[in-house]
């Protein structure tokens, strides 16, 4: 049996690879970066929503399962540059430091994931110009490494705001979809800040709180256990106040129905999820359609969310839309099962 190609070594890809190996199928796991674990690893996520487990406790077992499986041939810093269909399966050309050249694979799992929205594109928030405007993916690393200081002057902030839906639900930047994670992750970050520094005031600016399903618990807890404050209404622009010493968040409090202007020491932007460049490349490479948002689209998103519709190509994780880790992991398992069936013929 030719190996199953798993493209992408994030939570979804790792899960698919481990599952395939446990079924006894050989796997070719290809990741373009130099580490395993995808976005959670790239940005050094701190605690994970909703259960506040350290990210390592989730990622490490996923990685070690893969590393301990002899059936998995792993390649970091490697990509697929060309694809040719075979009567059954595909010929793929790998490009990487350890391995290059054509390989035959029986089926393919695309787990190419997402990219964060680049907050520089919301010009009015001054991200990239004002050092204390921070993207929440960077903030994960800051909490993780216990570096809660302001980039501008190294002082401990007294007041931090989170702004949800940056680059999501917004036609101004062409992204009308919801990122699904921004609410929960921002609230989690505020909780983490309050755990470590109860003296820091934390505010979350929202238009809707979408801590869907059981994740709602986190939202409630953040208020009654940690004293995180919620303001309904968005910040529409960020400028500098007090001669550049603080940030000025201008918005509307839509419950008071009044415009507001509040100085903050730091503002964290919950940037959305966009189809990753790797996902877009994979779509082109394998000739798969993408939806109007640019994500890969399963043929039947209700009945079979892991099947691309093209024989032998399966989809998993954030490559098909914004998703949490448990969903990405589950889809990795589902895609593995289908890919295994296909490979077995």
């Amino acid at each position: 049996m030719n190996p199953v190609l798993v493209l992408g070594g994030g939570p979804a890809g790792l899960s698919a690879a481990a599952e395939l190996a446990s079924l006894g199928a050989p796997v070719l796991l290809v990741e373009k970066e130099e580490y395993w674990g995808g976005n959670p690893r790239r940005w050094h996520y701190s605690l994970l929503a909703p259960d506040l487990l350290p990210a390592e406790e989730v990622l490490n077992p996923l990685v070690s399962r893969v590393e301990g499986a002899p059936l998995i041939e792993r390649h970091l810093r490697t990509t697929v540059s060309r694809v040719e269909p075979l009567s059954s399966g595909f010929r793929v050309e790998l490009k990487g430091p350890e391995t290059s050249g054509w390989r035959e694979v029986s089926s393919v799992v695309l787990a190419t994931g997402f990219d964060h929205f680049d907050s520089r594109r919301k010009y009015e928030y001054g991200y990239g110009r004002y050092p204390d405007v921070i993207d929440f993916k960077e903030f994960e690393g800051m909490i993780h490494d216990d570096r809660l200081t302001r980039p501008s002057d190294g002082a401990l902030p007294k007041r931090i705001a989170w702004l949800l839906c940056v680059g999501s639900r917004d036609v101004q930047v062409g992204n009308p979809w919801c990122c699904r994670m921004g609410c929960a992750v921002s609230i989690k970050q505020a909780v983490e800040v309050r755990q470590k520094h109860p003296e820091i005031d934390t505010y979350v600016y929202y238009m809707d709180i979408r801590t869907y399903g059981l994740w709602e618990d986190l939202y409630w807890k953040s208020m009654n256990e940690y004293g995180v404050k919620f303001i309904r209404g968005r910040i529409g622009q960020i400028t500098q106040a007090e001669g550049g010493k603080r940030l000025l968040a201008t918005g509307e409090d839509t419950i008071l129905s009044r415009p507001t202007e509040v100085p903050f020491d730091m503002i964290v932007l919950a940037s959305g999820m966009e189809p990753g460049t790797g996902t877009k490349e994979a779509a082109q490479l394998f000739g798969l359609p993408v939806g109007p948002e640019g994500f890969l689209t399963p043929k039947l998103s209700d009945l079979n969310p892991v099947e691309s519709g093209h024989p032998g190509i399966f989809l998993a994780g954030a490559a098909t839309g914004p998703k949490a880790i448990p969903d990405a992991v589950t889809e990795g398992m589902g895609a593995a099962l289908r890919a295994y069936k296909h490979a077995r013929g």
């Binding site: 680049d118 594109r121 036609v171 101004q172 930047v173 062409g174 992204n175 009308p176 109007p292 948002e293 640019g294």
Partner: peptide, 11 residues
């Protein structure tokens, strides 16, 4: 990129 996106989706 922003242009491409605005042209691609939404309004």
């Amino acid at each position: 990129e922003r242009d491409a996106r605005r042209r691609g989706t939404g309004k």
